[in-house]
Design a protein around this nucleic acid. Sequence first.
DNA 1: CTAGGGTTAG
Length: 809
Amino acid sequence: MYKLYSLRYMGLLQKSNCCQNWCRTLSRKALAESSILDTNRYLNELVTSGQIDEARKLFERMPHRDEFSWNTMVSGYADLGRLTEARKVFDETPNKSSITWSALVSGYCKHGYETEGFQLFWEMRYEGHKPSQFTLGSVLRVCSVKGLLLKGKQIHGYATKTNFDTKVFVITGLIDMYAKCFCVMDAELLFEEMPSGRNHVTWTAMINGYSLNGDAHKTIRCFRGMRAVGIQANQYTFPGVLTACTAVFDIGFGVQVHGCIVHGGFEANVFVQSALVDLYAKCGDLRSARNALELMEVDHVVSSNSMILGYVRNGFVEEALSLFKEMHERNIGPNDYTYPSVLNCLTSKKYVRKGQLVHCLVIKTGFKGYKIVSNALVDMYAKQGDLSSAFKVFDTILDRDVISWTSAVTGCAHNGFHEKALKFFSEMRNCGVQPDQVITSSILSSCAELALLKFGQEVHANFLKSSLGSSLSVDNSLVTMYANCGCLEEANIVFNSMETRNVITWTALIVGCAQNGKGKESLELYNEMILSGIKPDFITFIGLLFACSHAGLVDQGRKHFDSMVNVYGIRPGPDHYTCMIDLLGRAGKLHDAEKLLNEMSVEPDATVWKVFLAACKEHGNIDLAKKAALVLFKLTPQDAVPYVMLSNMYSAVGKWEDAAAVRKLMKSKSISKEPGYSWLEMNGKVHRFMSEDRSHPKMDQIYSKIGEVMALIKKAGYVPDMNFALHDINDEGKELGLAYHSEKLAVAFGFLYVPQGVPIRIYKNLRVCGDCHAAMKFMSKIYHRHIILRDSKCFHHFREGTCSCGDYY
DNA sequence: CTAGGGTTAG
């Protein structure tokens, strides 16, 4: 079938129909009487309009054939990729010239048989035929398409030697070759130094070269240069220019180019139209995109793909899906570009069924093995929370690229399996796949989540060693990772090195400072952020209010909470209320806290009630505490904390019977305290300790170290706090029990094996015990060690007898 | 005989 979408093409088509009629009605006599020149002209017209078989019939009937007739047939077959027939005619050609050879070389090259093309090229010279600039153009073309830089350079050398390097076809071919091989500088040099005679193809090659290499500004400048010297752009030029406009979202210039296109009469070309649809869709002007799409005379899959992607990127999921459906109804076959976009808009849990349907379509339409489609499927299933389907697809991908691995890694992380994410990342590296910015950012977030400093540092170091430039998301993840691992200094270094920062960057550091006991710095950072013109978001305020509550800044906290709602229109979530109630409660404003709790615009969750209960305990308000505990018994029936807290409150005021009753209730429901444990990481190994744990291979040394430590800090004034000991044993037993708390075992291990001068980093799954907190302050002073303890709430940096939390834990 | 073109996923 003929392509009807180009008016020019239509003109040609009519002509060739005439030609066909002429051919059919032409008698043998008339044919014999026509001049060979005329017959050759018609032969050529048949060939160029794609009617090679008609041309063949005419060719067979021709009484005389000259060089031109033979060459026309060779090039005709070669051009269409019918290379066996081309070769056969070539072999039969009585007087082969350079042109005959060139035609065949060009055909082989054009249709992907570069080896044969090159072979013929050398053979031709061996036979004594000088290649023409057209032959060189053809072999250069194959270098462009296949990215054969080395071969291309050889041709360049040959061209220089034979003085072909002044011919416009050769220079243009070289420019295109270098640009396609991503050596745009070499292309530019040739273009700049071209003595004269740049034609529209030369300009186009340079323009598209810049565009391909991602230099939108030079693309546009070059296009302007072309117009300035009065050379007309055509359907080959515009797509590249439009792509450049799209890349920099310059819709203003894009519209001007659109004007040129209409003016020049090129708006009916599919390539131009597709580029237009893409420009408008990517720039968010979906109406103009849709307009351009509707104006197309053929149903076209590339433009539909662009349109779908435009809908997806701009959040119009339903429109994207309905266009996909429309494609199906109009019999536009989807291709491997269609599915990623469609799958991409089905990543929410509510599209599980639709996701499966599209997966079925992928299989039915034969795109099952396409890596890019499979990658998108992995991502979709993982984001929908169906990891098992995700991995089923992942396992079928044979040649996994960095995007396949990223889909798996982020899929794990998305579902909270951060250790698994790290495993996949390591496996990827073992497979020799190099990480890029996206996966680096993702894996750093997992490190942050797990507070794995060592792993994170390694990823950071490898990233610096790689030649990848940094990106906003990598830097943001680094700030978060370091802050989450208690390394504010490093977080600050990354933060300060960044050229652009967004709300995530600022928030990461605000939260980091708050967690590490630098509440005032958090507030200062917040002010700086506002001054730099960046608006805070939901998460920024969680960090900010957390900072206020840790620093005990009641008025500031109230002010920011108020501005969050009234200035920034952010509806507070449970986390914001938790911070506020914690802040008010710890400051002794129990009734304000209770009032806020009752006024909450969302249902208070267990965390809110827990901080309220803790505040009641802190200030000895048993009535309110009882109320909170009762709510918590219902909300989190298996949580021991409210039982223990309430019982301890009764004990503290001597209400032994009430205390016992609570413990009995707890026992009857077979609730037990979550076992506390502490761990630290050394040389890639995790050392985990439970209270009174004796399972560690170096236990003897650890216990004797504890003996030494306890003796020394007692001499310095430490008094064991029996409130944190178990109840039913004597004082001596209690004291030993305290000494063997998991965090103390971990510190003793650190004293033994972490070199002096290196911080000892300990993690605990629960809140740090009050006695341990006091003891660690003494330890840090007597041993001159920096002890960093991350508990379930925040970081404690113990240095020279003080803690960064200001004892406000 | 003649070089140059548009859309992909994390």
